[in-house]
């Protein structure tokens, strides 16, 4: 049963590593990627993060590529527009399309590459987090960041019941489909409306039952959170430091370099 990212994160071996370390890696990657002036460091970060996700995190490669392709589509469109419509400097490429002159200039090309690199590195960093750290590990992080208790408790309950209601919604949808509820557009709209209202009523009832269940186990307004203690181990520390240092060095070296 793996159909959402959280499921992949749950079975990932990196799940059992220190959450803070993973968060630090991701934050560092994001910041370094965004602050870089040259496209090289972001590409390097993207490569490292992808490698970590697929090799250490054991995320299936095909899934990973598929995941990357979706936002890449948007990024590439944006990049084309930037390349063709901005910048000054020497022309690299020019042609006419239906009587309109189109040209790519050095500046524009540089900017386009940088945007592409930054967006890819950002995506890779976030996918690293999404594919190795399931939500249930993040509650402890939320708690440590001093968010209000009730917010965390609510998010824990919501997380649990998303799946309960997903099940209910799917079974209602199935029950509607087998009785031809989605055979025409009008009927689909009607069925969907019924699904929504039923789900609302169900969630209301579920709230009552939840209160009952919590009360019968002596609920006193507080839900304790148990954080599993996972110390950072030496190899992890070493690898992370090496990665940080390399990225920083790259950042420094490519400060004023230009590709074109």
């Amino acid at each position: 049963m793996t159909n959402i990212l959280d499921d992949y994160a749950l079975i990932s071996p990196l799940r059992h590593r220190n959450n803070w370390l993973k968060l630090a890696i991701v934050l560092f990657g994001l910041l370094a990627g965004v602050s870089s002036r040259s496209p090289i460091p972001p590409f390097f970060i993207a490569l490292c993060m992808s490698f970590a996700t697929v090799t250490f995190g054991k995320a299936p490669l095909s899934l990973y590529v598929k995941l990357l392709l979706a936002p890449m589509g948007f990024a590439v469109i944006g990049v084309f527009i930037i390349a063709f419509f901005s910048g000054t400097g020497p022309e690299l490429l020019s042609f006419e399309l239906l009587g309109y002159p189109l040209s790519v200039r050095a500046d524009g090309f540089e900017l386009a590459l940088l945007v592409l690199a930054r967006s890819i590195s950002g995506m890779c960093c976030l996918y690293f987090l999404a594919l190795t750290t399931p939500m249930i590990e993040l509650f402890a992080v939320l708690k440590a960041s001093r968010l209000p208790e009730s917010f965390i408790e609510l998010s824990m309950l919501i997380y649990r019941y998303i799946f309960v209601f997903l099940d209910i919604a799917l079974s209602i949808k199935y029950a509607q489909t087998v009785r031809l509820g989605y055979s025409s557009f009008r009927r689909s709209i009607r069925s969907l409306g019924m699904l929504g209202s039923t789900l609302f009523v169900r969630s209301w009832e579920q709230g009552d039952k939840l209160f009952l269940a919590m009360n019968s186990r002596c609920y006193d307004g507080k839900m304790a959170l148990f954080e599993v203690h996972r110390p950072v181990r030496a190899p992890e520390m070493l690898l992370t430091s090496a990665y940080f240092l390399l990225t920083l060095a790259l950042l420094y070296l490519t400060k004023n370099a230009s590709i074109v």
């Binding site: 939500m135 249930i136 509650f139 824990m156 309950l157 997380y159 649990r160 019941y161 309960v164 579920q206 039952k209 939840l210 009952l212 269940a213 919590m214 186990r217 002596c218 609920y219 839900m223 304790a224 959170l225 148990f226």
Partner: peptide
């Protein structure tokens, strides 16, 4: 499903 409300098995059993 009415009874188990915590996000992990451990947390649910630890609730009481």
């Amino acid at each position: 499903d009415d009874q188990i409300f915590a996000p992990t098995v451990f947390q649910d059993v630890a609730f009481g």
